[in-house]
């Protein structure tokens, strides 16, 4: 799963074109934007590959406040399927959510 996920999200160029469409961006912190969600997954996966774990309540919140609405996806020049990447990452966090926050 992680490999599939990476294939999709490693294309992200951090251009931020997706952010303006996101309904939760009013929260300002980037973990509540599509760009931030994708890149927090990248941060998580990178650390995991190094055998480290990430403790971040904001990451958890960012991922689970994604509405799956898809407003971001149509504007991504890199073709990242943002809502799907976030959704499939939820599954990973579901099992670890307590670990991530405590």
């Amino acid at each position: 799963m992680v490999v599939d996920l990476l294939k999709n999200i490693s294309k992200c160029s951090f251009c931020g074109f997706c952010e303006i469409s996101c309904p939760t961006r009013f929260l300002a912190k980037r973990n509540y934007t599509p760009r931030g969600r994708i890149n927090s997954i990248i941060v998580f996966v990178d650390l995991e590959a190094k055998g480290e774990s990430l403790k971040s309540e904001e990451m958890l919140k960012g991922i689970f406040t994604c509405l799956g609405c898809g407003a971001c996806k149509i504007h991504c020049p890199a073709g990242v399927d943002i809502p799907e990447a976030v959704r499939s990452f939820k599954a990973k966090l579901n099992k670890n959510s307590r670990k991530v926050i405590e």
């Binding site: 009013f26 994604c66 509405l67």
Partner: peptide, 26 residues
């Protein structure tokens, strides 16, 4: 249409507060 914005509903059970704020924006 294709550019529609979300009502906030999908996250109402996890975070009613943010869900409501999204509804307000819409």
């Amino acid at each position: 249409k294709k550019l529609t914005n979300c009502c906030g509903g999908p996250i109402e059970a996890l975070t009613p507060k943010i869900s409501k704020a999204v509804a307000e924006l819409r």
